[in-house]
């Protein structure tokens, strides 16, 4: 296979000089075309979000009447109404969500990477069985396990706290991420950790010194996804958080909805925009780590 032939080229370090001037013009032209396509796609992708932003400045009936994104009658009142419309200022719900998300991220990063390293690199008995069990836990729809789980946590006195939303993450219950990291670790050349082992590193040192730094893209992905999913997760937060002072953002947002009366669409959209900002910021920040993986340790 080609892979094995390229691997023999590990030592190659110089870039071959290519005649540049002639290809440059072609490259810029191609780059321009690419940008055009990417921008066009970006508009399609963004339009709905711009509409959401526009709607946050509109009155309820306009939200349902207009599908354009140009706002003629700016109504900034939605933001004030949304921020102060519930029992507590919306900032409290943002803080609550941030605490849950931070806990969940820490939990997933630690526990899932540990389990993933074991599954991907170490030999032990029942490995295949345990791995299969782990996959099976992803496959059962959460709606049928949430009632027994609720009963379990209520027995432990954890209702109305963030514990049922955070502690399980420290126990690697998000098997999705374990599997994700397993796949990434299996993509790391084994020579690297074999070398570390030969240098006398134990399994834990190999894990923390070699594997973890090399799987930064996977860790970043895990952090981003955990943040986004926790930030948007509605059902379990609805069930476990009871009193308004511990409500999270999705639960608070749904408080504006009234199936039997007036839904406060304006404030709902305004606060949806506000709630989206931290996620976007988190992504912008987190995706920088996507660029740093093994490629930086390779030869430039």
């Amino acid at each position: 296979m080609t892979i094995s032939s390229t691997r023999t080229a590990h030592t190659v370090s110089q870039r071959r000089e290519t005649p540049r001037s002639s290809t440059r013009r072609l490259k810029t032209a191609r780059g321009f075309g690419r940008h055009c396509a990417l921008i066009a796609l970006a508009i399609v992708m963004l339009y709905p979000l711009l509409w959401m932003l526009a709607s946050s400045f509109r009155s309820s009936d306009d939200i349902f009447r207009l599908s354009g994104i140009l706002v003629t009658h700016f109504k900034t009142g939605n933001y004030g109404k949304g921020w102060n419309g519930l029992k507590f200022p919306f900032g409290l719900y943002l803080i609550n969500s941030a605490i849950i998300a931070a806990g969940a991220i820490a939990g997933n990063l630690i526990s899932c990477s540990m389990a993933a390293y074991a599954f991907a690199r170490l030999r032990f008995r029942f490995k295949r069985t345990l791995f299969a069990i782990m996959l099976i836990t992803i496959m059962l729809p959460m709606h049928v396990v949430i009632v027994p789980q609720y009963i379990l946590f209520s027995r432990m006195g954890w209702l109305n706290t963030f514990l049922p939303l955070i502690v399980p993450k420290f126990l690697a219950t998000d098997a999705f991420f374990v599997f994700l990291m397993v796949q990434f670790i299996r993509g790391i050349p084994r020579e690297l950790d074999d070398a570390a082992r030969l240098d006398g590193c134990g399994y834990f040192r190999t894990f923390t010194r070699v594997i973890l730094p090399l799987m930064k893209p996977a860790l970043a992905t895990t952090a981003i996804f955990t943040f986004v999913w926790t930030w948007n997760d509605f059902f379990s937060q609805l069930i476990y958080l009871t009193a308004p002072n511990v409500y999270s953002v999705p639960v608070a947002l749904r408080s504006f909805v009234d199936a039997n009366g007036d839904t406060s669409w304006g404030p709902l959209f305004a606060m949806s925009v506000v709630a989206l900002l931290p996620v976007f910021a988190a992504f912008l920040f987190g995706q920088r780590f996507l660029t740093r993986g093994i490629s930086t340790t390779g030869i430039k």
């Binding site: 892979i3 390229t6 691997r7 023999t8 080229a9 590990h10 190659v12 370090s13 870039r15 990434f184 993509g187 790391i188 050349p189 090399l214 799987m215 893209p217 996977a218 996507l290 660029t291 740093r292 993986g293 093994i294 490629s295 390779g298 030869i299 430039k300």
Partner: peptide
């Protein structure tokens, strides 16, 4: 991002 750059170099 995780594919070692050396492979492409080679």
């Amino acid at each position: 991002r995780q594919i070692p750059a050396i492979y492409y170099e080679a």
